[in-house]
Amino acid sequence: MQSRRIRLVSLYSIPAILRNGSGITYVFITFVLGITITEPLLVFYESGILPIDEVLSKLEIAISVLLAAVSLEGTFPDLVDLGGKGELTGAAEWATYLLHQRPALLSAVFVLEMLCIPLFVATGAFNQLSGDLQFGAIRYQLLRVSRTELFLGRFFGMAAFSILLISTLLLAVVLYMGLRLDLYEWGELLAWGSRGILLFAVMSIPYVALCTMISANVRSPFGSLILTSAVISGVPLVSLSAMTAWAPLGKILYLLPWGFQHRLFHPDPQQALLAVAGCFAYTAIYLVLGCLLFRRRDL
């Protein structure tokens, strides 16, 4: 395996992503939906409909319920009930850290984006190899590059593109907050914003790897889109609804980083580092599994 060939495949794949319909959709969805979901938070503050303290107290409950839910601490209805009564101690402390020790609106944006970005990746990174498999374009490269190099090259190209895209979105939000809202110091905003951008980059990588795995083994781009979207959105939905029937079924959430990715923003640095390690470990698993399947399949 030659790193030079992997680098070349990834370098040449980036302009192709941009010229590709799915790449343009990826940019469009990430920016339009990414900005749209942050807008209500900013509108609440800018319009002054509700005082900021009231907004924060409602956000604190919502975020603590959400964090407790993805930590599999109970079923969603029970957690809503407990959250309303202020009985979610662990998750509430976590929410307090995000909303009171860090720029609150930016933390809220991070929590929302954390729920959406895996879905953006599913709709943007599904066509790394499946289109080339369908139309045979891959056959021109296969006698000049090994399957493993091709697989990894496409992954690195899409990962770089995704990181750039997501970072640009978050940077735009940070700059908007700094320029338009007179709420936080530039220093704390940039510090928290930079950390968030870095952690989102880490969080997106396993999802890109999952898309590479699916895309390399499904010959139709449409089939790949359906499968990546169904897996990435289906796992949390199935997990959270299945645990209402039997709590251990909630562990399905750990098939994807959904089960631990929120810990990237944990107040305890050790927990955050474990989540980073988890993201890399999942990336490695998806890549190894995907590559093994890709090397054996007919092309």
Binding site: R19, F135, R139, Y140
Partner: peptide, 10 residues
């Protein structure tokens, strides 16, 4: 190859 198409995005 007989039926392979080139990448339309490059």
């Amino acid at each position: 190859p007989q039926d392979a198409l080139f990448d339309r995005n490059m």
